[in-house]
């Protein structure tokens, strides 16, 4: 039994060690500003099209589905409220994190995994560079900056998707929709809507780096690391989402 537990416990310990080193490196020299910019471009700008598309359609679908339920109570006018709350609190952060996990955790794991199996990581260490400082910290910083921004964009585009449905399918006016959106959102929603992507950014970046850096077994190993990274990052996003939501519900039960 102890032997069975040993490996997962060691894995978690290694993950925390990597996370600790990556975070500590944020304030340590040398800083690789160029790498951070490059990663922000790849993760942020690169993910923008899929985040916009997904945000738009999830907002539109949410409006369509909710309007049917609300129609039973004659409250179709509240569609904007439901769309705004569900997008800002849950769908925006979680969907964006899942998309970025699928796109970038896998990308990071395969890139670092390929470097690992071709001994480029060893070469980096041999030539005077700390791979965590050079590869992991820039990806972490870049993701922590762009994921909240992508989430804000996804939220707005989602609300716009809801607006299109509200105006063209539900015969609401634009003012009616946007004023209900504006009135329902409170600081608490924005706080959890922005805290979540910030926390998810650590998962998306570090899980990708972690599985990439421990790749063994050639190209097959790279494929395995990529899959593991996406699966682990996606599951962790949901688990952490639960705990953060629980925290906010506990803090503000009303």
């Amino acid at each position: 039994m102890l032997d069975l537990l040993k490996r997962p416990i060691l894995t978690v310990q290694e993950f925390y060690l990597l996370a600790g080193q990556a975070v500590r490196n944020v304030i340590r020299q040398p800083h690789y500003g160029d790498d951070i910019s490059l990663q922000m471009d790849q993760i942020g700008v690169g993910s923008l099209p899929i985040v916009v598309l997904t945000g738009f359609f999830s907002g539109a679908v949410m409006a369509l589905q909710m309007s049917r339920a609300l129609a039973q109570y004659g409250q179709v006018g509240k569609t904007g409220e439901i769309v705004a709350i569900s997008l800002v609190r849950e769908l925006g952060p979680v969907l964006t994190a899942l998309l970025v996990a699928g796109r970038n955790s896998s990308g990071i794991a395969s890139e670092l995994g390929s470097m690992k199996v071709t001994e480029q990581i060893d070469a980096m260490r041999a030539l005077g560079t700390d791979p965590i400082q050079k590869l992991v910290t820039p990806r972490l910083v870049a993701t922590a900056v762009v994921l909240p921004l992508l989430t804000i964009i996804a939220d707005f585009i989602g609300m716009f998707g809801g607006y299109m449905i509200a105006v063209f399918r539900l015969n609401l006016t634009g003012t009616q929709y946007w004023s209900s959106v504006w009135q329902v959102l409170v600081w608490d929603d924005l706080a959890q809507g922005l805290l979540k992507p910030f926390v998810f950014a650590f998962v998306v970046a570090l899980v990708g780096c972690f599985f990439g850096l421990r790749t063994t077994g050639g190209t097959q190993g790279v494929g395995r690391a990529t899959t593991q990274a996406v699966v682990a990052a996606s599951v962790l996003v949901f688990v952490l989402d639960f705990f953060i939501t629980q925290l906010f519900v506990g803090l503000n039960p009303k």
Partner: peptide
């Protein structure tokens, strides 16, 4: 520790098996 090893490594040149050039 790793950081102190960098000074030692600057006295050593290494050719890796598959060259390990940065792509």
């Amino acid at each position: 520790p790793e950081r102190e090893l960098f000074d030692v490594r600057s006295k050593i040149g290494m050719l890796f098996q598959e060259s390990a050039l940065f792509d």
